[in-house]
Simulated assay, not measured.
Amino acid sequence: MLQIIGCNNHLGEQAPGIARNLTRLFELNPALELIVVPEEQREPKRNDPRLRNLESVIATSETLAEVAQTQLEAERTPINILGDHAASMGTVAASSTQVETLGVIWIDAHADLNVETTTPSGNIHGMPVAALLGLMETPELNNLHFEGPKLKPENMVYIGLRDVDPGEKVLLEQHNIMHFYWDEVVANGLETCLEKIVERFQTVDKVHVSLDLDSMDPQLIPGVSVPVKGGLTPAQTHQILRTLIEQTPVCAVDIVEYNPQLDKDDITAQYVLDTLELLKAYF
C-alpha cells in the first residue's frame, strides 16, 4: 500500500515557482489524496553563502524524514512529491532507518554531489547526495535525522547525468560510484544499463528511487527549473521505474523539481499524475 506525501519546498534552490507544485496538482486533480508537509522557514544563523537557507532546508527535511519514517513503519510505501531535490535528504534518511543496507538510484541530469568547497551556487539542492554519503563539512547535514551516513557509495547509482560539476566528477571517481551519463544510455541502450543496476542492487535490503524531472528532455518535460539539453524520455523513466519495482525491493519513490511556473500546457503536471497512477498499480 502506498502513501503519497507532498512538500512545496523551494528554498534549497530558490526557485519560487516550485513552491506551487502541490497547488497546481490539486487544481488539476482535486481528488488527489496526500499528506502535505509544508516547507519550514527558519531565520538564518550562519549566513554562509555556500549553504543558502541551511536552517530552513534542514528543518523541512527533518519533518519529511519523520513523516516518511512513520509510513514505512506502518508498512506503507512513501511516494514523495517534493519541490527541490534537497528534500530527498529527509526521505532517503527515513528509508535508511528501516534497513541495514539501503540502495539509492538518482535519476537526474545532475549529480547533486557538491560539497561546501565545490558548490558553484550555494544552493543545497545541489548537495543532497554528498550529505547522504556523509561527505559534507557541516555536521547538521551529514547527521540529518540520525547520526552518520545514510548509505554507502557502492550502493549509490546515477542514471541520466548530463550536467556534472568538476568537483562532483572528482567525487564520483574517488568513491567509485556507479553512474550512467545520458550519452552512455544512448550508446549502450537503456536495457543494458538497467541490467547492471539491477545486478548492483541484488546485495541491498531495500532500494530508494529518487526521480528528478530534469532527468528528461526539457522539450518533452518543460516544467523544471534547471533544464539540460537532451535526456531521457517520459517512457524511459517509466521503464526504469517498472524495472526497478519488478526486479528490486523498492521501498520509496521521490518525484522532484516540478515547477508549474515553467510548464507548458501542464505537460509536466500530467506526467507527475500519470506516474502516480503507474505507482498505484504496484503498491
Rank of each mutant, 00 (worst) to 15 (best):
V157W: 00
V157M: 04
V157R: 01
Y158A: 05
L161A: 09
L161M: 11
L161S: 08
R162T: 10
V164E: 01
D165W: 08
D165P: 14
P166H: 06
G167T: 14
E168V: 15
K169Y: 02
L171P: 02
L172E: 00
E173G: 04
H175Q: 05
H175R: 13
N176D: 07
N176Q: 10
N176I: 10
Y181S: 14
E184Y: 10
A187H: 11
A187W: 04
N188Q: 14
G189F: 08
G189V: 05
L190Q: 05
E191H: 15
T192C: 06
C193L: 06
C193T: 03
E195R: 13
K196G: 00
I197V: 11
R200Y: 03
R200P: 02
F201C: 05
F201A: 01
Q202K: 14
V204M: 03
V204L: 05
D205L: 11
V207T: 05
V207K: 05
V209Q: 02
V209H: 06
V209P: 07
V209T: 06
S210Q: 08
S210V: 14
S210D: 03
S210K: 13
L211M: 08
L211R: 09
D212T: 14
D214Q: 02
S215Y: 05
M216L: 12
M216N: 08
D217P: 07
P218G: 12
P218I: 15
Q219W: 04
Q219C: 05
Q219V: 10
L220E: 09
I221Q: 01
I221C: 03
P222K: 13
S225G: 11
S225M: 02
S225P: 02
